[in-house]
């Protein structure tokens, strides 16, 4: 089912890009239009292929749909949300606060290592990334809170 959703999203993207490209000069819209057709055809073929696989499996009596793994979805989704919050928080509270907090959350929640190794790991990673990117490469990243 996931592949069908991706293929449908691809078709949606093509229709959106065609609509946007309609106002461009002919030379500028040439390649996006051409590639749009290729993506569209392949997306339809992917849907047909999946449907044929289901039909074959159904005829053999082997068609089964596994239920979603809610634990994995929750864990993965939660971590992705944390990543987004981390990226956003750097410009608000700065790297030196955002990074240790971000590293601490999964280590506290999932407990892959003990407290002392966790604190040491957080300090080592924050310092190493700071040393390489800020000190050595002179990266201009917000380090402290902006307020």
């Amino acid at each position: 089912m996931g592949r069908i959703i991706v293929a449908l999203a691809g078709i949606g993207l093509v229709l959106f890009m065609w609509n946007e490209a309609a106002g461009y000069p002919p030379t500028a819209r040439q390649l996006p239009n051409l590639l749009g057709w290729v993506v569209l055809i392949l997306a339809v073929l992917a849907i047909v292929q999946q449907a044929l696989q289901w039909r074959r499996a159904s005829a053999d009596g082997t068609l089964t749909f596994d239920g979603p793994d809610w634990r994995a979805i929750g864990l993965g989704g939660g971590f992705l949300a944390l990543v987004m919050v981390y990226a956003w928080s750097i410009s608000v509270v700065g790297y030196l606060i955002a990074t240790p907090v971000f590293l601490a959350v999964p280590l506290l929640v999932l407990r892959p290592i003990g407290l002392v190794p966790a604190v040491l790991s957080i300090a080592a990673v924050t310092a190493a990334v700071y040393g390489v990117f800020v000190w050595f490469l002179s990266l201009n990243i917000p380090l402290y809170p902006a307020f």
Binding site: F79, T99, L103, P106, L107, L110
Partner: peptide, 13 residues
């Protein structure tokens, strides 16, 4: 589970 968050920090920076 220690490596995962470190990868994210390196990717973001």
């Amino acid at each position: 589970r220690v490596v995962g968050p470190v990868i994210v920090v390196l990717s973001v920076i």
